[in-house]
Each structure stands twice: as C-alpha cells, then as structure tokens.
Nucleic acid binder design. Sequence first.
DNA 1: CGAGTGACGTGAT
DNA 2: CATCACGCCACTC
Length: 108
Amino acid sequence: MDKINAFDAIYQVVREIPSGRVTTYGAIAAYLGMKGGARMVGWAMNASHTLADIPAHRVVNRNGVLTGKNFFGGNRMEMLLAEEGIRVQDDQIIHFKQHFWDPSAELA
DNA sequence: CGAGTGACGTGAT
DNA sequence: CATCACGCCACTC
C-alpha cells in the first residue's frame, strides 16, 4: 500500500536534514503528530541504524545531547557532526539552537 | 494477558 | 535554576 508509515515519514525527515543542521526527536514527533511519542522516534532511529542513508547522527534530544552516540559504535556520531561544522563538547552540541533545524518550519 | 523497557519530553516540586 | 517523577507509543519478556 502507499500508506506512508510513521517510520517512513521519520526516515524521510531525517534524510531531509541539511548538512550542518540538527533536529530533535520531539520536533520530528511533533511534525508527525506524535508529540507524546518522542520515545518512538528514538526507537525508529534504532531501526534506521540497520538501514542505510539515515543520518541519525543529526538527530539529538531536545537538550542537544548526543544521547544515542553510544549506538553509533563510539564517537562516530561526534565525528560526523564535527565534519559538518557542528561543535560538540561533552556529548553536547554547542550553539545547538543555532544548528537546530525544525521540520515543521523548514520542511513543512 | 500483564509488566517492563526505551536514541524523550514536559510538568511539578 | 536544578532535580525528580510521570506520561506517551510500540516492542519484548
């Protein structure tokens, strides 16, 4: 069926994240209407980890903290962000608000 | 079938 | 302002 599952939507949004920009689980959840299901977004990211072309490293919690960096297999997440010009310190993105990319505002 | 867990978020103390 | 506790949705034991 052509029904777009919430999962596909999540992957779609994550793929649309421009380089040097980051978003939050809650932002994606809210964009999909799952405001209270931020956890599910993270769970979807976990599944995306088995897929390809899913820059989940650009998705962080609302605090700008690399909560799932451990799932990337070490500091790969921090490295990727650094390559995009995003400064990370103590597993936290500096000027996170400045790099924040809101799908509801930019993608919508 | 019921309880517990999880890459989170918001509210209350 | 910082910390604790609860709630959401889906999945696993």
